[in-house]
């Protein structure tokens, strides 16, 4: 059996813990074609899982000689094992977010150094794919998200064959994310959201695996014929319709991520936490598809418990 081309990309010596390591897996040799990154945060289990599926498949394809000559693929399942192992979303000591530290600074603080160490290894690739997560816990319809930096390539994003390509305007803090900096350094960067984050969702992980293989095949990086996927619909993030909880309380969801809903359809109920009295029936204000659903038992007031992608004629 062929040995995995495993490499330590960045390392920090620790005092009492095992050393902090960012490990990458390389496939093929030659032009830096695509870099795929999984988790940067401690709760991104699905993101690691998807990468593990990609690594397994690429190993199989490499064995069959199906990685194109002169193309190199790098997969980094996790950029932050310390936080994953202690179940903390951000950096263990100071709670900083590695994905707010790019392009990093090799002489700076710890997470700036980690970001710099990772960025040094990922910045020269033609394509960059990151499995990302949202700060609010919830489930997504699988989508490719791109920031509108002027360098985004929508036609390429559609080649993943995921149901949606979502474009959004960068906010101030986005300028320190990997995706943004990849684009600044002229990598075609894509953030992929599968359905879940801290729970493994095998169906959407499979969809993400297919999407990545589909994309690599279309860029002639691998030789592969698989599931073609969807003809992606391109949506602007600003056109998403937020459906909010007017009251705080128990949240009972009736529609799942990816489900088509009609205007007026019941999406959820909010009930009083002590008496079970009905506080609000949350209905769809437009017909469309559920892009995001908040998946916690209790909702805070004003929480966007659903985000809908309206039918094209409603935008």
């Amino acid at each position: 059996m062929r040995r995995l081309n495993k490499e330590i990309l960045y390392e920090i010596k620790a005092l009492y813990r095992d050393d902090f390591r960012v490990t990458g897996y390389r496939f093929g040799k030659g032009e830096k074609s695509v870099c795929i990154l999984g988790s940067l945060r401690g709760n991104e289990f699905q993101q690691i899982y998807v990468c593990s599926q990609i690594i397994r498949k690429l190993l199989e394809l490499e064995k069959k000689g199906r990685i194109r000559e002169g193309k190199e693929i790098l997969v980094i399942p996790c950029g932050n094992p310390y936080s994953v192992n202690t179940k903390k979303r951000f950096w263990t000591v100071d709670n900083t977010d590695i994905n707010r530290m790019f392009p990093g600074y090799s002489l700076g603080e710890t997470t700036q150094r980690i970001a710099a160490g990772i960025f040094e290894k990922v910045k020269d690739y033609k394509y960059g794919i990151q499995f990302a997560s949202f700060y609010m816990p919830g489930n997504f319809v699988p989508q490719v998200r791109m920031m509108k930096t002027g360098a985004e390539n929508v036609a390429l994003a559609k080649q993943f064959g995921l149901p949606y390509v979502v474009l959004h305007k960068p906010r101030p803090f986005d300028t320190a994310t990997l995706n943004y900096n990849w684009q600044v350094w002229e990598t075609n960067a894509f953030s992929i959201y599968t359905t879940s984050t801290s729970a493994v969702d095998k169906a959407s992980a499979k969809q993400a695996l297919d999407a990545v293989l589909n994309f690599l095949s279309k860029q002639d990086i691998i030789q592969y014929q698989g599931y073609e996927g969807y003809i992606s619909r391109v949506v602007e993030g600003k056109d998403f319709v937020d459906v909010r909880a007017e009251h705080a309380g128990f949240l009972e969801q009736y529609a799942a991520a990816g489900e088509k809903v009609e205007k007026g359809q019941k999406l959820a109920e909010i009930r009083a936490p002590y008496t079970a009295g009905l506080l609000q029936v949350i209905s769809a204000p437009v017909s469309g598809t559920v892009a995001f659903v908040h998946n916690e038992a209790m909702a805070y007031q004003n929480t966007a418990v659903y985000k809908l992608i309206p039918e094209a004629d409603e935008i």
Binding site: F90, N95, Y135, M136, Q301
Partner: peptide
């Protein structure tokens, strides 16, 4: 930060009247 959300409040301004809590 803001517990429950793990957000830095000093990265939320100017905020949004129609946004989350």
């Amino acid at each position: 930060g803001i517990p429950a959300f793990d957000l830095d409040m000093n990265r939320l301004f100017p905020g949004n009247r129609n946004g989350d809590m």
